[in-house]
């Protein structure tokens, strides 16, 4: 009897998805759908927060007051994005602090791009332009995701992201037309961030185990390879425009398809970084864990004060 009910519920659920009716927190949903979303949204949230660190590095060293203010605002936006996403995870019944603890214990993943170091000012340009650019490609389709709170959070995020990519491209363009030292700095940043940016879209479709189900549930609207292709097609002409060279000797434009064809991605490197062997994995997670541990007394104090005050009020 119960089994029949579940399959009936599942049928109705898929019917809603097919009709593009959004799923809301209290609606019935298959457990797998819920777990997939919790995993995906919390990973996305962690990426926003860990992503603050490589750029945060350069706030105190920004070369002028305008760049300093822009970078501060940009990194702060990422904190906001993390927060919007954690609040949508919580609508699924997950607890924010528990998902954060999973990040700190190494159980939960985040975008591997943030495990690369930022060693020059030009990296602020490369990250804004390429990493935020790739993030936008990934995120725009998520604004139409079947889960209401996630889709709404992504609408907010995407509105804010457009300035991120522009400020990054502006930094790169400024460097590219600057002194030889500056141009070299920009090219060097592009060389280091190009391939990791392509890896941000995840493994090739043939290798990606979650894609098919996620597409059926409309959590995902495009495959990894489709998104990667869109990114390459959009970015290559931008690099040409400012006189920088994409570090891919096999890159060529296919007149027939109208698309660029890239060289092979080093997936061994990708999996090593995902596993924890990137240059900065340990630093990033340690830094986030320390922030939480150092803040614990503050969290407790505010709770204690709120309780005291409530007691005084009701006394």
């Amino acid at each position: 009897m119960k089994d029949i009910n579940i399959s009936e519920l599942e049928r109705k659920f898929q019917e809603k998805i097919d009709k593009d009716i959004k799923i809301e927190p209290k609606d019935w949903m298959p457990d797998d759908y819920r777990q997939t979303l919790i995993r995906q949204i919390s990973q996305h949230a962690h990426s926003e927060i860990v992503g603050m660190l490589p750029e945060g590095n350069w706030i105190t060293r920004a070369p002028n007051l305008r760049r300093k203010a822009v970078l501060l605002a940009k990194v702060q936006d990422e904190a906001g994005h993390g927060l919007y996403l954690y609040s949508s995870v919580e609508t699924l019944g997950a607890n924010r602090e528990e998902t954060i603890d999973d990040l700190h214990s190494g159980k939960a993943k985040y975008s591997s791009i943030f495990n690369y170091p930022t060693v020059s000012w030009a990296d602020m340009g490369a990250i804004g332009w390429l990493v935020d650019g790739a993030a936008i490609m990934n995120q725009v389709p998520l604004c139409r995701c079947s889960y209401g709170p996630y889709a709404r959070a992504m609408v907010r995020v995407c509105k804010e992201e457009s300035f991120h990519q522009r400020q990054g491209f502006e930094i790169m363009a400024q460097l590219a037309k600057g002194t030889p030292v500056q141009k070299e700095m920009a090219q060097d940043a592009l060389n280091r961030f190009w391939w990791p940016s392509l890896m941000m879209f995840g493994p090739n479709d043939a290798e990606s185990k979650h894609t098919a189900q996620s597409v059926k549930w409309k959590i995902k609207r495009h495959t990894n390879d489709e998104l990667r292709q869109m990114f390459v097609d959009a970015t290559v002409p931008q690099a040409e425009l400012i006189g920088l060279t994409i570090p891919d000797k096999d890159l060529k434009f296919n007149e027939e398809t109208g698309h660029y064809e890239s060289g092979a991605i080093n997936w061994d490197e990708f999996w090593e970084v995902v596993k924890g062997n990137g240059p900065c994995n340990k630093d990033r997670v340690d830094t986030r864990r320390k922030a939480k541990e150092d803040g614990m007394w503050v969290v407790e104090a505010a709770n204690a004060y709120a309780e005291k005050r409530n007691r005084r009020k009701s006394a």
Binding site: A73, Q76, G80, L83, Y84, S87, V299, A302, Y305, R309
Partner: peptide, 24 residues
């Protein structure tokens, strides 16, 4: 409704609401 956040008390909730949801 714009979303949620965490705060220890009502003042903090309003201030955090300002900082998180009205940056623009």
């Amino acid at each position: 409704h714009v979303g949620s956040l965490r705060a220890a008390d009502a003042e903090m909730a309003v201030e955090n609401g300002r900082d998180v949801y009205t940056r623009r």
